[in-house]
Amino acid sequence: MVAPGPLIDLVDVHKTLGTKHILQGMTLQVNRGETLVIIGRSGIGKTVTLKHMVGLLRPDRGKVLIEGRDISSYAQEDLDRVRMKFGFVWQNGALLNSMSVGANVALPLREHENLPDDEIRRIVREKLAIVDLHDVEDMMPGILSGGMKKRVSLARAIVRSPEFILYDEPTAGLDPIMSNAINELIVNMKTTLGVTSVVVTHDMPSAFRIADRIAMLRKGRIIKIGTPAEFLETDDPVIKQFVYGEEEGPDEATEV
């Protein structure tokens, strides 16, 4: 049963953290099967937005609808059921430091599926190979480089073949070749498995490569949402400045 309408629907979401009013009436829809890229300056609230989509943060005001249902009032069990459909690639990896890489990637399988050990090992090896990691299962996360951690986090996110994947800066800190491989992976997940993706990135070439639509976040709202072509053609000085990385423009490098 596929519900009509957007898969993820943020309606007029407000969120204050500490003393900062971070989301100020954010409205954003993610359609089934698309890859939506969110861009915006550092510290603007992109990670906060992703956390709302999986119910880690609840809006002070407004609604977060997943498949048409408001998750902000869900009880724990319902939230857990919704989260089962998600994969989340963390900006810093967020691997469990007390267990090996292999155990980290295997964790969702061990917790939620009843599979024999060698089957789990096979899947883990396969998913790690997808992100070009080999023979790392027995290493501890603490000794991995930042880029490797991120790739392990990606392998963990896709280990149970989720329907939606949220990527928080999946290519930041990776070399260009690896970045391209990750871009291809994101595109492949869409074309072969019909996965819906939301990708937060600062990496404009990557954004143009993978996006069906791009949304730009500024001052707590989405100021523009459209296809990559629309972003290239725009005359809006704020967007042009961001897309082309110009120092001169409406936004100061020092202000956030």
Partner: peptide, 21 residues
């Protein structure tokens, strides 16, 4: 210290997103 470190390094958020209480 163990659990606090896991909290601030977002390991606990990661667990929750994986539906692990």
């Amino acid at each position: 210290a163990e659990i606090g470190t896991m909290r601030v390094s977002e390991e606990i958020d990661a667990l929750e997103v994986m539906s692990i209480n």
